[in-house]
Write a protein that binds this DNA or RNA. Structure first.
Lengths: 179, 179
DNA sequence: AGTTTACTTCAAAATGAATTGAACTTTGCG
DNA sequence: CGCAAAGTTCAATTCATTTTGAAGTAAACT
């Protein structure tokens, strides 16, 4: 069972104006895939589900399409799409001769991944470094053993921070390979 | 202000049986550092705070010490310590001639990081790969363009999965360098 | 202008995760 | 044995985040 309900259909039938059962199954599996992945990154389910359903469609989907294929409210569709647009995960394609906007996945995933890398990891590492600098200044003074222990610990954290920062460029390079 | 309350003290004073103000400040900064980092990894605040307070102490701390330095309940201390022991973040040192157990940070952080890497990333990537295999089987059949588009998309996801898996050994190697 | 369609906003409700605290277990001591 | 200290457990509560839905805005059609 998909972890986000997708609208019910009758197995083996092509629904009036609708999709075949195997298509629905495929959509469900895709939604699940993204919902799972998103959990790891702390992205809300509904957002991941929307991306999944858009990704699972060979043709751009309208706002209404998304709302009906997933069982989520209009409000959630609206907010989810906003987030996805902001991070460049989906893009709007102008609907030829129609008032409704259509959405399709932005397949340049490299950009998304890179943005995530920069915004979350790089940023966190950087401000971690700053914080550690401050921590070092706060170190209780003293020539006794206790003070030395604490200095060593702060030093260790700084080493880790440095190591992690050094890893980032490696990851970036990796991403560029074989797009 | 530290993001987790630490027990109040009077600035500039050494408290009866207590710690100097600068020590308290250092503790607060350390707690904050770990609470921040933990947020990124989805670890509960109280757990991170406990680790922080233990890490900020040059000497092993007792259960009671932890409870009084942070303002959290006995229940949380107990559960937090359990988690930290399970992942090998703190270890119990036998208190010479006393009934209370004492805790100190396990400074072999490499192990912790590695465990995290294996349990969360490696595992997720692996099961992602499996899921993608299933997804590929669910692909709606057809010789038309739509089917081709979907096949290409699943393929793209598989490429990403492969790429990410390939990155893991690189990261592992990196961790081993310069302990 | 008035109506419909398409979407957005945001306060309130639902969900889910972390925290508490009271009851319980265990171990040491007189 | 009985009491006290140290810790654990878990149901109930609190807190944060996500989701809903009803009211509102904007553009297109008639």
């Amino acid at each position: 069972m998909p972890s986000v309900a997708i609208s019910p259909s009758h197995p083996g039938l092509v629904l009036p104006g609708g999709r075949a059962a195997d298509v629905v199954a495929f959509e469900g599996a895709m939604v699940d895939f993204f919902v799972d992945a998103a959990e790891l990154l702390g992205v809300p389910k509904s957002v991941a589900a929307i991306y999944g359903i858009v990704f699972a469609s060979p043709v751009p989907l309208s706002f209404a399409d998304i709302g009906s294929r997933l069982d989520i409210s209009k409000g959630s569709v609206s907010q989810g799409l906003r987030v996805l647009r902001e991070v460049g995960a989906v893009k709007e394609v102008s609907a030829a001769a129609d008032r409704a906007e259509l959405f399709e996945p932005d397949l340049e995933m490299r950009k998304m991944v890179q943005r995530f890398l920069e915004n979350r990891l790089a940023r966190q590492l950087e401000q971690g470094g700053t914080r550690l600098g401050q921590l070092a200044k706060t170190l209780p003074q003293g020539r006794n053993g206790d003070a030395a222990v604490l200095r060593a610990r702060v030093k260790q954290l700084q080493n880790w921070n440095t190591k992690a920062r050094a890893l980032l460029p490696v990851v970036r390079t990796f991403l560029k390979l074989g797009g």
